[in-house]
């Protein structure tokens, strides 16, 4: 893309920069990890060549256990279903990574660039568990939702993939067209704890 092309996350209109400048000290902390590269990867987990191909393209083993994830410095892979993964990479590298994957994979597989289709919200803070308890029906206890686990679930009246990155840290992958609804939902649901936005 040329440098002149303006790029905007699905929550551009929420003005997170302005909200962050307010420096609110809230029990819930929200950050949009915006404009990352999102690739949807499909393939046969029982095919050793597929696993090898992914490993060579991403330098990361494909997580095979249900609801698991894998991460290195540049890449996160989230298990979505037995033959579907979400690969998250730095913004603007998605085309190159897609190319690498297509090069190293043979046989039956699929890669779709969905970087425009979704965004990631990072939620943390001492009250983030209560916020999530209002939003999803899944058990947030560390025994059932340990760090690095990923679940696809209903979030309020939308849905999301949620990955736990710490006892009080979560990543929410949400769809672009529902982003505004979820932003409204998170504001309403965190009202009693205070919501601070960071960049």
């Amino acid at each position: 893309m040329s440098n002149s092309a303006r790029v905007e996350s699905p929550l551009e209109h929420a003005d997170f920069a302005g909200l962050a400048a307010l420096k609110i000290n809230g029990g819930v902390i929200l950050r949009e990890a915006k404009l990352l590269g999102h690739l949807n990867l499909r393939g046969n987990a029982n095919d050793p060549d597929f696993l090898k191909g992914v490993k060579s393209a991403l330098d990361l083993d494909l997580p095979l256990a249900p609801c698991s994830s894998a991460q290195n410095a540049n890449t996160t892979i989230m298990w979505l279903s037995p033959d579907e993964w979400l690969v998250i990479v730095d913004g603007v590298t998605e085309a190159a990574i897609e190319g690498k994957l297509r090069q190293s994979l043979r046989g039956h597989f699929a890669v779709s660039d969905i970087s425009g289709a979704q965004t990631m919200l990072e939620i943390s803070g001492k009250d983030c568990l209560q916020l999530l308890q209002k939003s999803i029906g899944y058990d947030l206890h560390l025994d059932s939702f340990p760090i690095n686990k990923v679940i696809g679930t209903a979030l309020a009246k939308s849905s999301a993939h949620i990955r736990r990155t710490g006892e009080y840290n979560f990543q929410l992958i949400i769809r672009r067209s529902f982003a505004d609804y979820i932003w409204l939902w998170l504001q309403q649901s965190s009202k009693e704890y205070g919501l601070s936005v960071t960049l």
């Binding site: 249900p66 609801c67 029906g137 899944y138 059932s144 679940i151 696809g152 679930t153 209903a154």
Partner: peptide
């Protein structure tokens, strides 16, 4: 997913 989930999913 090899686990229990709520009906709404």
């Amino acid at each position: 997913c090899e686990e229990y989930r709520e009906e709404e999913e």
